[in-house]
Design a protein around this nucleic acid. Structure first.
Lengths: 205, 205
DNA sequence: GTCTATAACGAGATAGAC
DNA sequence: GTCTATCTCGTTATAGAC
């Protein structure tokens, strides 16, 4: 990102990043070419490299932005809220991210599947720490009898898995469902699954 | 696959496919190079192309083999078995595939994320048909009161999602869990989740 | 700031000796 | 059957005109 000065520069930078998201999320870093990104952005290839020093720089800029949005919802789970509703709200938010930002999800998935060479440190650092804190909260809820006992880590993994599945495996989901909108049924199913798992025995009908 | 005659030929073919699985599952088709596959296989690049006519041919051979193992467990769900146990056995089997064949899972994930250009027909054809039949079975179980009412498609999606997550997002799972073995906790969690969701109200403690 | 042209390199595939 | 050498093309990145 050389200079973020004029309006047209910001616009071109945004166009490049938007185009790069489309391409990288489909083919991964090594499978994508600058020609594809340039075409998608409506710019020439050298012009891309005027705004960003390298292919790598475009990709890492994209990843860095993504990680912020990725970690932020985790921090919004409130220990003093209603446990089941807090976790349901988190899962619903993640599902809506899959619905409205599927390319971001696939970009992330590509990076992880390939061994997370560029964000491994974040996973082992900030993400791990965030989840450690959340695990304590969830364990506290279980001990207080507000939810049924559950492994907090695998609970989060399963929320990630089922929500991101609808973005990352979108092609497969739509191949099977045909014209039906996946997300309506998905939300109802995930809510039912989490309520069945988490709601303590003897709570409401 | 030119000739599948002699023993050494079969061995080299197997070495190539095994090496190709390692490489393609990590970098995807376009991100992988024949040099990498040749190195991994301990053969020269021209020698690879003696056994297979092209890079594409190696990849599609791998995909075709994978698809058989991928679809087969679905067919083993028996309509006359105990519903909850049948579905649990299927989920357990899928989880064990993630544990013992994670590269196959990542190869499949790469292909789907990139839009399934080579297996889209299988998804819209055989897989869709298989799931249609299974959905009828599951709906029958629900109507007979043997499981709680559930959307059969999203139930299968969620089983796929949570089991494959442990292979495809292995790096992230291990970054968070550290030294702990993911699969022990995973199995217990998935079983608890499915039993909570599926077991009809008023069945055993 | 944006373009054409091109350098430098990597990768899929082939030729031909052994 | 397997190798070395090479052809050819696609890709990243740069040089330099406008």
């Amino acid at each position: 990102m050389p200079k973020a000065d004029t309006r047209i520069q910001k616009k071109n930078q945004a166009a490049i990043l938007s185009a790069a998201l489309v391409v990288f999320s489909q083919f991964g870093f090594r499978g994508s070419t600058l020609d594809q990104v340039a075409d998608e952005a409506g710019l020439s290839k050298p012009n891309l490299l005027y705004y960003f020093p390298s292919k790598e720089a475009i990709y890492t800029t994209l990843l860095a932005r993504l990680l912020e949005n990725w970690l932020e919802p985790l921090k919004n789970i409130k220990a003093d809220g209603d446990p089941v509703e807090e976790l349901l709200a988190y899962a619903t938010h993640k599902l809506e991210m899959s619905q409205h930002f599927p390319r971001e999800s696939r970009l992330f998935a590509n990076e992880i599947i390939q061994g997370a060479p560029r964000i491994g440190e974040v996973l082992r650092g900030e993400l791990r720490e965030l989840l450690g804190e959340l695990a304590i909260v969830i364990n506290g809820w279980a001990e207080a009898g507000k939810i049924r006992p559950v492994d907090p880590y695998h609970l989060i993994f399963s929320i990630w898995a089922v929500t991101q599945h609808y973005a990352d495996f979108d092609v497969q989901v739509r191949a099977i469902l045909g014209d039906a909108d996946p997300f309506e049924g998905a939300h109802a199913h995930i809510e039912a699954m989490l309520r069945a798992l988490l709601t303590p025995a003897g709570s409401n009908p």
